[in-house]
Amino acid sequence: MMGLIWLCARHELLLAARSRWLQWFAVIFAGLALLVAGSGYVLSGGYGLQDFARTAVSLVQLVLLIVPLAALVFGSLTLSPDRGAAELLYAQPVPRWAILAGRVIGLFLALAAAELLGFGVAGLAVQYYSGPSGASQFLAVVALSLALTAVFLAIAAALASGEPGRRARALAMSLVVWFVAVILFDLAALGVASMLRSGAASRVLMTAALVNPVDAGRTGAYMAIEGTSAFGAASLALLRFAGGERAVAALVTASLLLWTIVPAWVAARRLGRTDL
């Protein structure tokens, strides 16, 4: 079974590596990462302060915006079981979930490789200008990026699996999900919080910061990069709410894991039921 999943993964990786989409994504991501790293350097250059933390934080912003979008678009376009190829593929005497798992893993490898390439280029540029610094901060950004890739590929798979032959619909839905995850959810949380009394409001916001995978990723990455005081007094409230630094890390990890496992499970179920 593992061999089979791996075969599907290799196959998907091959297709992805050769696709113009991924090549463009790799180039654009590297370009943006380079730009962010460069402007971070220019900003801090005059003072020699916050060199790497500020660059890493800017990279986090980029990752939070671009990575979910790429994973959702790429995933929903690729994983939507279109009539024809998919029919043939899923007609094999192999459980459908295994094929899906293989394909998702292949896509993940392709996107992860493109992201690593981008971070690597940006990292080389930063080192060239300001010397080696903050490797652990840099790795935190990379980890965030890989985690969000997994989360939103799983969500894309869940969206696409139920829509055989309706790629456009899967794509539209994944764009909605992206918009909700990146902006709308936070706006709603802030709106709700602004109407509550301070105790309830801060519980709503702290829960929201851990529930939404994009927020959980941001919270975790900032605390990893800037230290536990990254959000000032709000950090202290969060640490108290969660029960300490390790608890925050555990909750962030749990949130990201759940957002990967649950949609993946939903995708497998939906694909199993779909009439191809």
Partner: peptide, 16 residues
């Protein structure tokens, strides 16, 4: 999922 998330928020904010 948004509904679920908001529900979780609501529950979390009622702890007392």
């Amino acid at each position: 999922s948004i509904g679920m998330a908001l529900l979780t928020l609501a529950v979390a904010s009622c702890a007392g």
